[in-house]
Amino acid sequence: MKSDRDEINGQGGRPTRRHVLECMTWAGTGILWTISGGVPRSLGLVDQALAQSDDALTFMQISDSHIGFDKPANPNVRGTLELAIGQIKTLPTRPSFLIHTGDITHLSKIEEFDNADAIISQARLDVHYVPGEHDILDDEQKLYRDRYGRGTRGSGWYSFDANGVHFIGIVNVANLKAGGLGSIGGEQLAWLEDDLRDRPASTPIVVFAHIPLWMVYPTWGWGTDDSGRALELLKRFGSVTVLNGHIHQVMQKVEGNVTFHTAASTAFPQPAPGSAPSPGPMKVEDAKLRKLLGTASISFRRGEQRLAVVDRPLEP
């Protein structure tokens, strides 16, 4: 990281391109999160889980497993997902559950969902999903909901509580409008307002959705049109953590009480914003793929300006 902090934090909180590029690092197969005293922190590497206090909550985020993808960027996406799950199984501290931030499958095929489930279930943990746009490609958009949508509303949104933390799964990949970006929609926003209404501002909030809820790079569709309305509903809360996927790379941003984080894919890397003609899968040499799908350590505390992102490739 260079020292141009003023540039980074300027311009109304919108990251400059340089900031985006600097703050990015190739990410891991999974990121271990812990919440202690209401402030989520990443414990970092899945292979470096730390001892925790008994009252801490630990969970994993995995994303963009794209089961069914077979192109040169990674012809073995099942293998890399197995690697991620294998690491989760060997953690010294067992996480309480998994969050999968979408694009479980590549083409919403039944066998792709089956294959993903067969691997992810090996973690023997509850998994809280939100769909990515690749998970709702069937005509009736029911394969995802039939499998993961029990107890959810609309296109699959829901909330739950764990250890005093309120988790909200947002769907921002359905009913997208021509020329637009990700979309939450009025019905879901009304539900969110209702869901938050009676919660004290001291409740730590974790929001998870597939497409980033901040404007990472609209030129490539990496943002959500009405995320501002959701964030407006969340601004009275003292600790808000937003976990997203979709862009296949780690990125972080802190804005007031809100910490935004995007996770790496377990399947294939995508290019840094604007660094390629399109956001399509980034082909790298075989020997390099695992370096790009290595693990990442992200440490942050609410209120701190400096983020620490340390990439830790599986192969040095």
Partner: peptide, 9 residues
């Protein structure tokens, strides 16, 4: 447009 990537028109 592309309903998956609606910025494509």
């Amino acid at each position: 447009f592309c309903s998956l990537h609606p910025h494509m028109t």
